[in-house]
Every structure is written in structure tokens, then in C-alpha cells.
Nucleic acid binder design. Structure first.
Length: 973
RNA sequence: GGGCGAGUGGCGGAAUGGCAGACGCGCUGGCUUCAGGUGCCAGUGAGGGCAACCUCGUGGGGGUUCAAGUCCCCCCUCGCCCACCA
């Protein structure tokens, strides 16, 4: 018994042992302390320091249930946060009670922008605020009664954790992607292949290959560095002055702003770290077939990776023998209709091909006359020369932000370069334009324009009065413009008559035979920009030598600890897009240089001053939970194999990994793509045993709450609003309007878990969040509804405990047959629902059982022991505190947490007799009761004999009788 | 513009093609209480009828079926994702 039961109740005349908030709170406090003291939720490993009493669970199947861990914000948890956590906690507890060894841990994603921005706002060092916030989150989570093994918890900003984040980065740095074997291999293997001559170096200076021994030491290092999975690249990146850092493509919205903070983002070339995720594009798509994920998430990943099959076609440049422009197209079958060429404005060949002067027949529109109103300094007849036009148009294009491009209704603009190239299939000279609708970042940055079959090219051709040749026969009556549908090839020489698929195959064969191109695959995915100019992140384990070339810090020197700084704030400026990134670590004057011996004696090196992005720690934290104290490896091999192995009971193919991963759909392409990539690298290098990290993914819904805005549109505290839908809503006497949105600070509609414990207890909160709807659905929070599940717990308690004196109201007599059937039907249903994560219907079934029990107790004065035991056990995953209290009250010594979930007696799931509805012409006219095993004939006879049926038939003969035994009778007259 | 998903009482939501609205909130009536309610009991889709019952009813319109919230076609509304990706 908890001592709380002896405390006076807050209400004056309520029974002393009524399950109210005060009693719930004392029960919860008592068991939380007891569980912590007894290590109830400790999960044993098969080996190592956390082996504990592994024998106890040996032979059980393992189950790894994982939540997307939070970043610990200064606001603390609101009731919208723990929805998924409660769901996994219920599931983990249920599976433990049904015989699994369950891994269930919570950690903290504490590096990165959110933590740092919070620190900036409060003016306190992020380490201090992070530690404080983590403690607050832990306290709040303990109060909800989560069954985590807290010994395994990790915090990504802890040096003992990020030591291994850095170690994994070095794995990436020290490996390369072998395209032939489609996997990562140690960089040393590449060096060996170069040295032995089995692989030759091909670069811009040596397109036909060059001997390794012919290269300088420095050139060799450059070649190696260019192969690494983590490499430095100078390329256009997303520079966000408002945040003072560069961002990954995934962190930039389609409006060209930062996902976090909504600051403008500018493209500019900078030297940055990148990770070669593009090498894994094919496997990242293919292995989606191995995992049990929601189809929309798989689709989002496939779309993000953006695989396109097509061909590369080389168009020789006119008057420049031996030179050609490569294009990528998904429609090589339309090449006979390519009547002009378009390059991205930034395409490197533009300067090379641009003509000295306009041709006599080049119309004003080709010279840029159409831009006269849009761009400063354009004469009404266009620019005077192609080079002026190119320069002017480039200026115009680079000034346009992505947002402006979108707003500008996609009017096609561009200018002629004055140059021509030759269509390789028919020898025609076709003009080369530059236009901003062709993007440098995709394919080759150049297209062959086929206006007859491409809407964008059609628009461009119309705007610039260019020739249009159809190469696919549109259906008769087609009055559209570009025809993108299926049809026989026309105007295409040897392709004529072929369908699109056959024509593609034929032209690719032709291109490959003639050496004019080849079939190829292109991806939208870009390499992952991996450095940030922020303080609060993992330092790179990298130093630079006097040649400015990167070298790995030896593993023995990890972690490279983040130095303490007086001023750790980022350098930001919202207005100035010409600003340049300044890593705050540059201010660490003692730290930024280091003397170490990397072979050849101690030398002074310059440290990498950027830090890793927020996603680094979350890429692999689920592996550290398994072996958090391991000082020799990021995870021990035996432990990793035990928890990550993936064998389905039926032996079907399975990726393995985490058995159930629950989190928000907002991570569909960021975290989930990045961590799959890291996991695959670790898999290739034999550090983990499964090709995928997360076997099953489940996206929980978002809890929304009513928010209220006044006449000015300013949000007011939702908790201070009075009124209802009929009367309207008021804040401080003034009318406000209601909307629903994500719970949080910005809408002023947060509800803290503490408010709910104080009024009802944590078990009620847990139960309410599970009962309010399907776990994967968004749903509005409604504090008013909570009383329903609280009453349920109160009635259940009252059915087992005498509210006045606290004694048990449990009898040894067996339950009557109907109650026993209800019990076993409930057991079967609840088991099913919990296995399927349908906790809302599981709660409904328990309430139904308890309602039946309440009737029984009203008549008999006590609960049959058999029902009491089963009900408490079934309640345990959902409301663990009150279940544990009742379990001990029922006389059990051991924890309900490790007790067996009840099993249904199959013989009690079928009734002896069943009531069947009888439909006449589709409408229910009567109900008959027949034996469950009755034959069709017997059921039909019983239906026809029923007086209500007879009167409804009114003597009409039955034309047809449909009998579904156990279901219904349907008569047609 | 393209893709995906969803529309069921006053509200949240249940329904292997087989009795629509389980369960909960709210509401109505009653009990308990000096009073209040976070207590208890009963009722509660709409309309009609004293009643047994009858009619209508799952965004709208068609269809398949003995039987449709569920399957098929068209349309409307909302949400999410992508958006000049060659």
C-alpha cells in the first residue's frame, strides 16, 4: 500500500479511499520511487556490464521499441509531446507482459539550433541550459510513469556520446564508395588499388587515365580526398545570414527560406564539408522494399531521392570540333524534335561558347528585348552582343530569389548565346539559349528542348518563336500544345511507328553504338552539406596541415571536445546577403591550433572550425542505447546483433533493426534519410549487422488545441478564454475567434502535463491520450473530455476497493457465465488491439468490461477474483501506477510490470446461441435467436416462423433467401 | 498544377461488404448533498406515434449487390507532401 492512502482527501466529505487526484498522485509518486529503487525497468543485455540477470529473459524474443527522441526545449513538455511516447510505452509494457525482452529507452537530442537559440534568448551558455532542460524533461517524463531503462539514456551533447559521433564521421572520412560493388570500403583499399595499378586515376587533366606513380604526393592526396564519403567541396550552398550558417537542401523550404526561423536563404559558393549520400541513392530507394513503413513516407523518400531513368546525349558544338554539350533527358525517343538547346545560366560552358556578335537574323527577343521592362539597362531592342546578354541575364537570374521565381508566374525568360550545336541524329544546327528554367543542380545543367513533347519547352518556343516538331502522334482531336502522352513516333526516321518504350530502347542502342550518348539514371538527391557555422554542435575530428589539406585526428584523441567560449553566439545579419560565414569556434584562440604527432613528429595543425549539423547525433543514437557504457566501441558487436537482428516468425525477408519506431511524419526525409545513410555505411564497414536501421515505422498524429485571436489577430492565452460555440468566445470581455493548431508557445494554447496530474493524476492523462482516437491521427485536445477516463479508473477502483474503509471487495466465487464470456472476449479483443497499436478501442473494451462488472458488483457486492486479476493486468500497460497499486492490494508480491498478460479461453469466445437480424428487402424487420451451430435450413425455418417476419411478409412468397450463419438472414420478396 | 489521405450525431470517435453511431464528452431527467461537483442511476441521431413500431440518415450524384459508411465511377470540401527536376 502507498502511504498516500492515509492522507486526508482534499474534498471534505468524499470517501477516504476514493480514487481521486490526491490518491492517484500519492500512488503514482510511491510506485515511481519504488520502480526506480528496484530497477524494475532495467533491460538486460546478452553480455557486457548491463548483462544483469540476463538468464531471467533468455529465450524470450527481443523487441526494440523506439521513440524519436526530443530536443529538450526550455518550455518543457506540453501534453501534445508525449502522445507517441505514451503509445510506445503502452506497447512496450504489453509486449513485455506477453513474453518479450523489451528495449525501451529515452534520450535527448541536445546539440543544434533549437538548443542554441534557446541559449541565445536566455543569454546562458547552451551547456547550462541544456543540462537544466534535460533534467526538467526527465522529471516530467518520470512523472508520466514511462518504463524506460534510464541507465541507457544518452544526450548527444555529452562528450562520451559525441566521441562516437566523431568516430563515425571518421569512418565516413576514411572510406569511399566502390561503384562496382555498390558499397563503402576502407580508403586504404582504394590506395592499394591505385598503387597496384588495378585502378587508374581519371581526372580533368587525364581523361584517359594516369599512373598513380606519375602523380605528385599532393595530387595523390587530392585524388584520395575526392573519393572519401566525407569530403570538402567548393560549391553553391544555402547561406542563411539570419541564422549565421549554411543549411542542407532538406532544411530549406520551397519558398527559399530556412525551415527553422523562416529567414531568407541565398545560394553562394562556399567551401564546405559534404557527405556522399548520393552514392547510396540506388540502395536507399531499393531497400525501402525491405521495411514496414507507411507508404506516404516511402513515397516522400522516393520523391526526394528522385530517380529518373533516361539517357545522356552529346550534342556537338558547331564550329568547335571535338567539343560537345551533354544533356540528360528522360525522353531520348523525342530527340528528332529537339529544335533548340537550353543551358542553365551558371553552366560552365556558357563562357566558352558565347558568340562575339549577333547573327543578322537573330530576332530582338533572342537578344533580350523581352526583359527591357524587368531588368535595368536593357535596351528596347535587347543587348548589343551575346556576351552582354549573357552577363545581363546572369545578373538578372542570380538576383532572383527562389521565392521571386515562384511568384513570377513562370513566364519563360532567357537569351540566345549566339552559338549553335548539332543534333546528333539529324545533323541540324540548333540555337543554344540560357534560361533560368534549367537548373544547374540537376542532370547536366543542360537540356535538349523538345517543344512538341514538353510543356515548358513549348512555352519557351512560343515566347522566342522557335521551331516546333512533333515526334509523337497526338490522338485525333488533340487541341493542346505539347503532347506528353503515349503514341507512335513520327518525324523520327528509324524510330517512326514505335511506341515510347520501344523508341527509347532503340535510340539508346543507337546512341551507344555511335558513341553519342548512353542510357543513364539521374537523381534529384544532392550530397549532404554537413558543416555549420555554429557553436553548439559536434566539432569535426579534423585538422588541416600547412597545405590546407584535411587530416583525421587519431581515434585515440577522441573526443575532440567543444571548447568553452565567452562569446558563443553566431554572427548573423538578416539584411546582408553578402556577409560571409564566421564559425564561432574561430574565437577559441587557444583551441583552434593544436600540436600533435600524426607521424613524422609533432607539428602544429589548424583545427576545423565548423561544427556538425543537428542531425549528426540522431543518425545513430538508437545504437548507443544498446551499449551506452562501452568505451571501446560505439556499440558492442554481440549486443548489437542481439537487439538489431531481424527474424520474422514466419521467416520472410526482413531488414532487421529497431522493431518499432514511432515519431512524427515531419522527419520523413530529414532524419530518416540521413540515419538510413549512416546505417548503410556502418553496415558496409561491418560495424552493424543489418542493412536498415528501422524495420517498422509508425507516424503518430499531432495533438492540436484551440487557439484564440482577438480583433487584431493577436493570440491570447487559450486558458483565459470563456464562452462556447453558441455564445461565442471571449477573452477579458472582448470577443475572440477560435482556430485549431499545433500546441505551443506561438499560439498560446499549451496545456502542461502538470495541470492534468494535479487535477486527475498521470494515469488519467495516459489513458486519455490513448483513448482520444487512433494513434496515427491528428486530434484536438479537449481538457473537458478527460473526466470520462478518470471516472472509468474511479469506478474500476471502486469495483475492487471499498471506498470507505479501503479493504478489498473481491470474492473467491467464480463469475457468472455471461460476465466470464465478456471477460474473455475483452481479453481477446484487447490483446488484438494492443498488438495493432489500436489503444483507443482497447480502452473502450476495458470500459465496457468494467461497466458490466459495475452491474455485477451492484447486484452481488463484490468482484470475482478471476475478473479482478485479469482487469488489473489488462490495465497495467495503460495505467501502470494504479494497476501496480491494485495488483499489490490483491496480494501479489511481484510487480505487475513483469506479470503475464491474460490469455483468452477460446471456448468462451463463441456463444451457444446467437441473435440474428432478419432483413426483408434489405431492411431489418425482426431478430431471431438460434443455436450458434444451427444449419442454414434450421435458420431459414426459424426466420420464416417468426411472427414479426410473417407479418412483414404479409403472405408474399420469398423469392430468395440469403443465410449467413452467425451473421444474418436476408429475405427477398 | 501533380501526388497522397480524409469527410459518420452538438463534440472526440466505433463498425472482417452483414443490426450505423461501440466507448467517452456534452445534454436531459432523477438520486445523494446545507450547497457545489471531479459522486450515483436512467435516457439521448433526426422526424412521427400513447405504444409496439414506422420513415429518413455516414459530404453530393450515379452504379455493383439479397445487403454499401465500407467496393466502382463522377463531383465538392478539407488536410498533408511536392512543385519549371528535363
Amino acid at each position: 500500500m502507498s502511504e498516500g492512502a492515509d492522507e486526508p482527501s482534499t474534498t471534505t466529505d468524499a470517501p477516504k479511499f476514493r480514487y481521486d487526484a490526491a490518491l492517484a498522485n500519492s500512488i503514482e509518486r510511491h510506485w515511481q520511487e519504488t520502480w526506480a529503487a528496484q530497477g524494475t525497468y532495467h533491460t538486460p543485455n546478452p553480455s557486457g556490464p548491463l548483462r544483469d540477470d540476463f538468464e531471467r529473459v533468455e529465450g524470450r524474443p527481443k523487441l526494440y521499441v523506439l521513440d524519436m527522441f526530443p530536443y529538450p526545449s526550455g518550455e518543457g513538455l506540453h501534453v501534445g509531446h508525449p502522445l507517441g511516447y505514451i503509445g510506445t510505452d503502452v506497447y512496450a509494457r504489453f509486449k513485455r507482459m506477453t513474453g518479450y525482452n523489451v528495449m525501451h529507452v529515452m534520450g535527448f537530442d541536445s546539440f543544434g539550433l533549437p538548443a542554441e537559440q534557446h541559449a541565445v534568448q536566455t543569454g546562458t551558455h547552451p551547456r547550462v541550459t541544456t543540462e537544466r532542460n534535460v533534467e526538467n524533461y526527465k522529471r516530467q517524463m518520470r512523472a508520466i510513469g514511462f518504463g524506460y531503462d534510464w541507465r541507457r539514456s544518452v544526450n548527444t551533447s555529452d562528450p562520451t556520446f559525441y566521441k562516437w559521433t566523431q568516430w563515425i564521421f571518421l569512418q565516413l572520412f576514411n572510406s569511399w564508395f566502390d561503384a562496382d560493388e555498390q558499397r563503402a570500403r576502407p580508403i586504404s583499399a582504394l590506395v592499394e588499388e591505385f598503387e597496384s595499378g588495378t585502378r587508374v586515376v581519371i581526372d580533368d587533366d587525364h581523361p584517359d587515365g594516369v599512373e598513380w606513380t606519375a602523380l605528385s604526393d599532393r595530387r595523390r592526396r587530392e585524388v584520395i580526398d575526392d573519393h572519401r564519403l566525407a569530403y570538402i567541396d567548393e560549391a553553391p550552398v544555402n547561406w542563411c545570414p539570419g541564422l549565421g550558417t549554411v543549411l542542407a537542401n532538406e532544411e530549406v523550404t520551397s519558398e527559399g527560406r530556412s525551415e527553422r526561423g523562416n529567414f531568407p536563404v541565398f545560394r553562394r559558393p562556399l567551401k564546405q564539408w559534404k557527405l556522399r549520400i548520393t552514392a547510396y541513392a540506388e540502395r536507399l530507394i531499393a531497400d525501402l522494399d525491405l521495411v514496414d513503413w507507411p507508404e506516404p513516407v516511402k513515397l516522400m523518400q522516393r520523391n526526394w531521392i528522385g530517380r529518373s531513368e533516361g539517357a545522356r546525349i552529346d550534342f556537338p558544338i558547331a564550329n568547335q570540333p571535338g567539343e560537345a554539350i551533354s544533356v540528360f533527358t528522360t525522353r531520348p525517343d523525342t530527340v528528332f524534335g529537339a529544335t533548340f538547346m537550353v543551358l542553365a545560366p551558371e553552366h560552365p560552358l556558357v563562357d566558352h561558347i558565347v558568340a562575339g556578335s549577333w547573327g543578322d537574323n537573330d530576332p530582338p527577343s533572342w537578344r533580350g528585348s523581352g526583359l527591357a521592362g524587368l531588368v535595368d539597362g536593357v535596351p528596347a531592342t535587347g543587348w548589343d552582343s551575346p556576351s552582354e546578354a549573357v552577363a545581363g541575364y546572369r545578373r538578372h537570374a542570380s538576383m532572383k530569389s527562389d521565392l521571386e521565381r515562384q511568384v513570377e508566374s513562370r513566364q519563360k525568360t532567357g537569351v540566345f548565346t549566339g552559338a549553335y550545336c548539332i543534333n546528333p541524329v539529324n545533323g541540324e544546327h540548333i540555337p543554344i539559349f540560357i534560361a533560368d528554367y534549367v537548373l544547374m543542380g540537376y542532370g547536366t545543367g543542360a537540356i535538349m528542348a523538345v517543344p512538341g513533347q514538353d510543356e515548358r519547352d513549348w512555352e519557351f518556343a512560343e515566347a522566342f518563336d522557335l521551331r516546333i516538331v512533333r515526334t509523337v502522334q497526338p490522338p485525333s482531336g488533340f487541341d493542346g500544345r505539347a503532347f506528353t502522352g503515349e503514341g507512335p513516333a513520327i518525324n523520327s526516321d528509324f524510330l517512326n511507328g514505335l511506341g515510347i518504350t520501344d523508341a527509347k530502347q532503340a535510340i539508346i542502342r543507337w546512341l551507344e553504338e555511335k558513341g553519342r550518348g548512353e542510357g543513364t539514371v539521374t537523381y534529384k538527391l544532392r550530397d549532404w552539406l554537413f558543416s555549420r557555422q555554429r557553436y553548439w554542435g559536434e566539432p569535426f575530428p579534423i585538422v588541416f596541415d600547412e597545405d590546407d589539406m584535411p587530416l583525421a585526428v587519431p581515434e585515440s584523441m577522441l573526443p575532440v571536445e567543444l571548447p568553452d567560449l565567452e562569446d558563443w553566439t553566431p554572427t548573423t545579419s538578416v539584411e546582408d546577403e553578402d556577409s560571409i560565414p564566421e564559425p564561432p569556434l574561430g574565437r577559441a584562440t587557444q583551441w583552434r591550433e593544436v600540436e600533435i604527432d600524426l607521424g613524422g613528429g609533432p607539428k602544429v595543425y589548424r583545427r576545423e572550425l565548423n561544427t556538425m549539423p543537428q542531425w549528426a547525433g540522431s543518425c545513430w543514437y538508437y545504437l548507443r542505447y544498446l551499449d551506452p557504457t562501452n568505451e571501446n566501441a560505439f556499440v558492442g558487436a554481440e549486443v548489437e546483433r542481439y537487439w538489431m537482428r531481424g527474424a520474422r516468425p514466419d521467416g520472410s525477408p526482413k531488414a532487421g533493426g529497431v522493431d518499432l519506431y514511432v515519431g512524427g511524419v515531419e522527419h520523413a526525409v530529414l532524419h530518416l534519410l540521413y540515419s538510413r545513410f549512416w546505417h548503410k555505411v556502418l553496415f558496409d564497414l561491418n560495424h552493424v549487422s543489418t542493412p536498415e536501421p528501422f524495420q517498422r515505422l509508425f507516424n503518430q498524429g499531432m495533438i492540436q488545441a484551440a487557439a484564440y485571436a482577438d480583433e487584431r489577430g493577436v493570440y491570447v492565452e487559450a486558458g483565459e478564454v470563456a464562452g462556447d460555440e453558441q455564445a461565442g468566445f471571449f477573452h477579458a470581455g472582448r470577443p475572440v475567434t477560435r482556430e485549431f493548431g499545433k500546441m505551443g508557445k506561438s499560439l498560446k494554447n499549451s496545456v502542461s502535463p502538470e495541470e492534468i496530474y494535479d487535477a486527475y493524476g498521470a494515469d488519467t492523462l495516459r489513458l486519455y491520450e490513448m483513448a482520444m482516437g487512433p494513434l496515427d491521427q491528428d486530434r484536438p485536445w479537449n481538457t473537458r473530455d478527460i473526466i470520462g477516463v478518470h471516472r472509468f479508473l474511479q469506478r474500476l477502483w471502486r469495483n475492487l476497493v471499498d471506498e470507505e474503509v479501503g479493504g478489498l471487495r473481491v470474492s473467491t466465487s467464480p463469475p457468472p457465465a455471461d460476465l466470464k464470456r465478456t471477460l474473455h472476449r475483452t481479453i481477446a479483443g484487447v490483446r488484438d488491439d494492443m498488438d495493432g497499436l489500436r489503444f483507443n478501442t482497447a480502452v473502450a473494451k476495458l470500459i465496457e468490461l468494467n461497466n458490466a462488472l459495475t452491474k455485477h458488483v451492484a447486484e452481488h457486492g463484490s468482484t470475482p477474483r478471476e475478473v479482478a486479476d485479469a482487469l488489473v493486468l489488462m490495465l497495467a500497460p495503460l495505467a501502470p501506477h494504479v494497476a501496480e497499486e491494485l495488483w499489490h492490494h490483491l496480494g501479489n508480491e511481484s510487480s505487475v510490470v513483469w506479470s503475464a498478460f491474460p490469455s483468452a479461453d477460446a471456448s468462451l469466445l463463441v456463444d451457444d446461441t446467437v441473435e440474428l437480424p432478419v432483413q426483408i428487402n434489405g431492411k431489418v424487420r425482426s431478430r431471431i435467436t438460434v443455436a450458434a451451430a444451427a444449419s442454414r435450413d434450421a435458420i431459414e425455418a426459424a426466420a420464416l416462423a417468426d411472427p414479426a417476419v410473417q407479418s412483414a411478409l404479409a403472405g408474399r412468397p420469398v423469392q430468395k433467401a440469403v443465410i449467413v450463419p452467425g451473421r444474418m438472414v436476408s429475405l427477398v420478396v
